[in-house]
Each structure stands twice: as structure tokens, then as C-alpha cells.
Design a protein around this nucleic acid. Sequence first.
DNA 1: CTGAGGTATGTGTTCGAGCACATTTTTTGT
DNA 2: ACAAAAAATGTGCTCGAACACATACCTCAG
Lengths: 359, 359
Amino acid sequence: MFFCYIYRMKKKYTIKDIAELAGVSKGTVDRVIHKRGKVSEKAFADVSRILAEIDYKPNLIARNLKNNKIYTLCVLIPDYNLDQYWLSCKEGIKSVKQEYASFDIVIKTLLYHSKDVDSFLQKSNEVLDLKPDGVLMVPSFQKESDTIINLFANQNIVVSIFNNNITNDKIFNFVGQDLIKSGRIAAKLFDLILGEGKIAVLYIGANYKNATYFHEKEKGFRAYIKSTQTKISSTTLTFSTENLESEFLSFLKNNPDIKGLFVTNSKTYMVAELLEKHHIKNLKLIGYDLLDKNITHLKNNTIQFLIHQNAKHQIYLGLTNLIEHFMFSKTTPKNNLLPINIINSENLSSYTQKEISYS
Amino acid sequence: MFFCYIYRMKKKYTIKDIAELAGVSKGTVDRVIHKRGKVSEKAFADVSRILAEIDYKPNLIARNLKNNKIYTLCVLIPDYNLDQYWLSCKEGIKSVKQEYASFDIVIKTLLYHSKDVDSFLQKSNEVLDLKPDGVLMVPSFQKESDTIINLFANQNIVVSIFNNNITNDKIFNFVGQDLIKSGRIAAKLFDLILGEGKIAVLYIGANYKNATYFHEKEKGFRAYIKSTQTKISSTTLTFSTENLESEFLSFLKNNPDIKGLFVTNSKTYMVAELLEKHHIKNLKLIGYDLLDKNITHLKNNTIQFLIHQNAKHQIYLGLTNLIEHFMFSKTTPKNNLLPINIINSENLSSYTQKEISYS
DNA sequence: CTGAGGTATGTGTTCGAGCACATTTTTTGT
DNA sequence: ACAAAAAATGTGCTCGAACACATACCTCAG
């Protein structure tokens, strides 16, 4: 009955098996498992004992088949047509859609303008109208995100966030990186390749509301310098994208002792372009993210290292965590901190190649 | 019928739906889908047309429930009690077991002595006796592995390999890293942190049969030097673990111009220990794998970088690829080349932390 | 002592795919 | 033209969990 003799393996116990063992019907077992009541104390005790004894695990395949529900998920992120950083999210969503093509899962993407609160609020309301089972969002605007997340929670929508974290106990799951560590890593890399010297920490195009996101990285950078006996020192600057060229060049002129540049976001290529244009050599440059333009400068050695935040993997994990939660009641860690990848010109391709020879 | 109006979403088409659309019974649709024959040309064409039209995707949950089979997998790897490198595989297997605890999957682990062909052959035969559905193995001995893989294939056992690759067209799936790239990465790192100087490439405990494994890395290392206008140069050495101390010290004495050491396997800590014991400073050390002992020396800066081969993730992927293949007929790339992670003392923790706060 | 009203327990159907078996239709040979 | 064989098609049950519904059991009031 419970043994498959050909393979000499135990097959999993089913509700029917348990019913027989306990001398009751499968209906009663079901009521005990789901604590639906309407069960005598004796029956409850008997069945519970057996469940514990055999360490019963329900067949999730069967459960899911019965549930047979269409799950709707919404992705609420900054418009990837406006900032290349978010473009990889598009691929991440595509991967998930492909992987779960055979299941009844619908994913709707809503893009907001990452610097426009109104667009964020408008798209949030569209999400509410769609009445999804879950939402995966980037909480760009701290205060507004908090309000919206509470609204979602009130509608019994499960909310996960990624990229940057905010504190709200309604959040199901966060996927991202430890930004302080991220900054420390940059400092360590400068320490290793320079040994000593002054490094400029740069914010570019920093009219973002979530400046905390960048501050954390700088905090980590400084913390490393403070906690080790390194001969590295740092200074912090903010540039708008518009006046970058003139401001940056005059900064370099006034600070000839600068040995390295740490750009705290994906706009690293902008600095690289300036260095190349003005033939500035011997400045080490470390920045973020595998945008096409960054990759070009990494390959020709204007950029020494890129720290990979892997937005694609973040959104992928955020979505699959939600799906597995709905489909198989899988538990996931509340905080999902991803590895921080150090990329140089040589290991780059091992991160960017998609799929290798199916046949 | 096909629309769930509450959510205004299309539900997936079922075999029954297709049968109605084509004006045949679900049995006929089934025969068309599985190309079992016994279908008239007209019916075949009609059903095929509709299948293509609606892009039918079978419900894998239902398919799997019906199949309802216990899948047995064997893991055939070097004994992780004898070489710490393989220890992380134990955790990888554990993760997979936990993740698939609710499914009828049995995983049996067989450990062979990584330097003893006879033990490898004996364990291989034990695998054959177990008649598993699939095997995930490390093909330590090239010739013997090839033979065994053919034997497995003859018994209709699906074979995947990981860690190191061999050419055999019966292999279902390979998971590992590009070793040539791996060597290039080490060279690039020396290039960045040294700028110039001579580097010793070391094989330690190299009475392995699969020396190709290490040769590839050296090949990559040299290739980098050759392809760039770097001022780095290299020399290659082999040490046994027994005479390491005396041989290594005399090598250093005779070669005072050595600026860096590249250990091509996880025995990096042995070199680190010697450097510390004899107070040798100013030698940059790069090696492989996050063994406890390596980590200690990475943290106190005797080792500058470790390249992470992530055996745990390799075995995890190898196993899940097999399981998803059996359970959901999922296709996987034949070659699964994993990213090559560069680890220093600062991003280390982002790779080693397991799970973060479930509650 | 009987039936209402509650609780406890059992039964039967559903989900979608897959496959064995039953039934119908077509083809073939005499 | 008709039976027999072959091919095509249809039917119905199974997998395990979930849940609606049916039935059995018990208690207490009238």
C-alpha cells in the first residue's frame, strides 16, 4: 500500500492513508488538517497524532490543481524607457513569464516616472483598480509608498518591494542589497588597487527623493576607511547631470590630489566619458551596474570595477517568491539580501551571457 | 466558459476546451498532442491547427499529478569528509531536499575517494544497482567517467555532471564555470592591484588525475597576459602538500622578484599559513573557494581575493535541473556556465549568509 | 418517546492530463 | 454484399486535496 517495491521506496502518505490509519473518513482528516472544527476531541487527537507521527506533508501538486485559481500580480516600477538602470527589469519580468507560462499567472507591469510623485500615485491607484493578488514595487517615494502599501494591505493585496527598503510591517518580502556593505566594498577595492590617496565619492543626477539610497553607500565607504588603518581618504560631491562637465572638470583642477572616483549609481559612464574626452588618465573609477555604456568603459579600462546590483535578478526573485507563496504556500525570508558582485572586464561576460547551447 | 469575469482574465485552455473547439473528443486531442497515432489526417490537422492557434500549454500541475511517480536521483561526488572543497555540496543537497520535501523525490548520496579510481568505479556500480531515474556526478576520472556515463545511458538513467566538464554526448546537462575565464580573472586582478611584476602560478597537492582542470586556469592566466599590454608576467610551479613548506620557501628565496601568488585550487590557505608563519609581507595572494580557512586569511588580508566556484550552487542547480526535467519536462541549457564571483573581505559576507529573518 | 436541532462523520465531485478500454466507423477480402 | 479486421474516436476512471452536501449520531425539550 505505502511501498513501491520496484524501487523499494516509500511513497508519500495521502489523506486517504491517514483516514484509514486513524479509522475515520478523509473528510474528518481534512477538517483536522485545516482546523475547520466540527470534529470530536477523540477524532482530532487520533488524527493529529498520526499526522505528527508520519510527518505528513500535503501533496502541493494536488492542492494546487484543486485550487485552480488565476493569480494576478502587478509590477510597479520606474519607467525603464527613461532610465537604463531599470531596463534589465524588463528582461527579469520576461523570464518569469516564460518560466511560469504553463501556470495560470498574469503579470501586469505599470511604469511610473521615477521623479514624479503624482505619476507614482496615479499608477498605484491603477494597481488598486486591477485588484491583483500581489504587488511587487520599488518604493521610490518613502512617505507615499508607506501610505500606498497600507492601502494595498487593506485590500488583502500581498506587497513585496525590491531595490530599496523601507520599514513597513505589512511588507511580505524585500529583495535587495546591503548598501552599506556595497559602499565598503568600493572602499576596499580602492584600498587594494591604490594603496593610498584621496577618493571622490560622487552623486550624479541626485535630485532623487530617495537620497538615503546613496547616502548608505557613502556611509559604508567612510565606515571602511574609519575601521581599517588604510591610507585612503575621501571627499563627497553632488553633481547634476546638466552641469556635470564644467563642474566636474573644475573640481578636478582644484583637487589635483584625487586618485580615485566612486560614482554611487549607474551614471558612472558619464564620468568615464568625460575622462576619455579630456584624456585624463591615472584616475581609478569604480561605479555601479552593467549598463551597456558602463560595460564599454569597463572593457576599455576607463572603469576598473562595477558593482552589480542585478536589478534583473532582484525583480525575478521578488516575483517568484510571490508566485511560490501563492501557488505552494512557500515561506520566504522577509529580507532577501543578494550577493554583491564585483565585476571587472574579465568576469563580466560570465554575468551577462544568457543561456548557453540548449542542444 | 474561458473567461473568469471577476478578474476579466482568460483562463488557460484545457484539453476539453480544445476538444470542443475541434469538434472531437479529448481522447483524440490527447493522441494528437502526444503523437500517439490512430488519428485521421483530418482530425490531426484540425486539432493541430487549434493547438497552434491558441498556443496551448498543458497544465503541468495536472500532468504531474497524474504521472504520480517517485523519482530517484543519485549524487556521485568525492567524499566531502576528506576534502573541505566538497563540503558545501552537502548543504546544497540539503537545500534541494528541503525545497522538494513535499514532492515524491528521493536523493541518495554516494561518496567516492577523489584520488582512488577503484572507489569511483565501485560507487558507480552501486548507483547502477539503485536504478535511479537520474544521476548527478563529478567526473573526476576522465576515461572511467566516460565509460560509466555510457553504462548509465544504456540503463536509461539521465546523467548530469558538474564542477568539471568532459565531452560525452549522452550528458544531459553540465553545471560549472569557464575555467579559462577564471584564470583570466585572476590575471586581471593582479594587473589591477600590482600594475607590474612576476606572479607564480601554483598547483598544490596536484597528484590529481584531472590536471586539465588546473591547466585550464593557467591557460587563461597566460592568455590574459598575452592579449593585453600588461607588465605582469608569470611562472608555473607544482607542489605536493607534503613538501610544500620547504619547497615553497626555497622557491621564494631563489625568486625574490615574485610579487604575487596565484593558487589554482582551494588549498590557498596552505600558502597563506606559510606567509604568515614566516612573516612574508608584500606578496599578493589570490586563490579559490570560500573554505573556512581561506576565509580567515581573506579577512586578515593575507589573501587579497578568492574566486568563488560555488560548488554548493553548482550541485543545487544540477539537481533542480534534473528534478524539473522529470517533473515538468523543463528544458535546460546543455551547458550551464555560472558567474565567476570575485570575493574580497568586504563582499564575502553577502555570499556566506544563509537566510535572513523569516519573521 | 419522538422529533427538532445541533454536532460529528462520511460521500461524492471537482480540478486537467493521461491512458486503458469501449465503441463506432472505415477498410479489406471473399 | 457481408463479415472480419483495422483504424478512428469516445468514455470513464485515476492521481490527491478540497469542499459542498448528505447522512449518521446525540441531546434535550415537549
